[in-house]
Simulated assay, not measured.
Amino acid sequence: MEYAYNKGYYEVANKFFKGMFSSLLKSNDENIAKAMLVGVLRIAKSGFLSGLNNITIYPFYQENYKDSSSLYVDKFGFMSDKIELLLLLRRSTYLYNLRSIVRLLSYGILGAYWTDTGSTQTLEKCLWKASFSFKESVKKLLKGKNINNAKIQDDLQYLHLDQCQDLAIWTLLYYAEYLTMNSKKHLVISNKEIRSEWHNWVINVLFFTQGQTITSMLDNLLHGNLDLFSKEFENMIVDMLSFYEVGGSNSGKNAEYVYHVFCLGVFANAHDQGFIVHSNREAGFGRYDIKIVPKPGINETAIIIKFKVVRDKKSLHDVAQEGLLQIEEKQYQVGLEENIKKLLEIGIAFEEKKACVLGHLLHKTEEGAWNKD
């Protein structure tokens, strides 16, 4: 269902699975007496009257739910006594991830094995659009505090995520095991491994950034107001990027990745205004870093951006100019859609927590050539 949601056919998949589960589990007495469904998220009961309505749910987070919810709570994952036998760890009431424990036993090294097993694409999209109160709650979580005013939704539908409902995001985070509940039923980050993943989101997804700042900056970019965009973008780099990630000894090749992911996360919000955002794809005689293209009928201006990192004691301005010239020389505009009449080419240079933005606007002639303003 997550794959269907991200690929744009959620409703089709939802209808298919409702019919399939109803046929298999509700109208199949000749072949089946009982079935157990095990998964991360609860499936929604289907339809009107006698659809798939005979499911008994055993959620882990409600101990007294209908007097039987704890029936299987100790059947998934390793319990503390099992871990003690393997590693002689001190007693704990938490479950442990099987993959992480097996990897630890295999390699003899503690590592973040669990967090590399799944995609966080959906979560990252949600965090971008979360409310201010949600972001404030996340700040508390990262300080080691718990959240006592968030609830878990009984039936999560992915369409709720499109509506930016905080309740749906908390539920998805809980079922995806990025949050757990303490003895008081408050949401907390369970361990250092998960906490490190949260901190990666802070750097790469920037859900702490004030929404108005991003909205204003994007509006100026998408409407070709290059001077205003440049000022807001350069200020944001100073405010939001960490010297720990892009400064000093970390200002080398790894910094290029941080800058790229940072900017991609920012510009991805153009999706909400009817634009398609492409990253690091071939065009002309090379690869651009980011291309933002409007859907037909939305706008006539496309944007191509090239990132450069300052090396060899060059100036920010000169390196940004190199990026701008590279767009022209490599002909990254080749293959633009017919509805594109204007093209904003931008070169952005980075040096630690500083940035320089240069660009120009081109118009497409009737013959198909591009002329600068």
Rank of each mutant, 00 (worst) to 15 (best):
F16Q: 04
R281M: 12
G323R: 12
L362T: 09
S190H: 12
Y178E: 00
E338A: 12
Y107C: 03
H223C: 07
Y61T: 09
S119I: 04
L123V: 03
C356G: 01
T171P: 02
G47Y: 04
N220H: 15
V73G: 01
S190M: 11
S27D: 14
E193D: 07
E282I: 10
N53D: 13
G248F: 03
N299D: 05
E136G: 08
L226E: 01
T215S: 14
H160Y: 06
K143W: 01
I237W: 00
A13R: 11
L325Y: 01
L71T: 09
K342H: 10
E11A: 14
L88H: 05
K129E: 09
S131E: 07
V246Q: 10
F208S: 02
L95I: 08
G347S: 05
F21A: 05
Y94S: 12
F267C: 10
E193Y: 07
V138W: 00
A369R: 10
V357F: 11
G118M: 10
C164G: 08
N53W: 12
K330V: 05
A349C: 00
G111V: 02
Y58K: 01
T120D: 13
N254G: 15
V293C: 04
G51N: 06
S230A: 11
E232L: 10
I346D: 04
N269C: 07
E329N: 06
G323C: 08
Q153G: 09
G111A: 08
N269Q: 07
F285N: 14
K313Y: 13
N220S: 15
Q326T: 03
E352W: 08
K342W: 06
N269T: 04
K308P: 13
C126Q: 03
G118F: 08
Y107P: 06
E197C: 02
G211M: 12
F132Y: 05
L344C: 13
S279T: 10
L127R: 01
K308E: 05
C356Q: 03
E11D: 14
E234Y: 08
A255E: 09
K143H: 07
F285Q: 13
L264G: 07
T117I: 11
T93F: 14
Q62M: 14
S196C: 14
V40H: 00
I348G: 01
E256L: 04
V277R: 15
L241T: 15
R281T: 09
V334H: 04
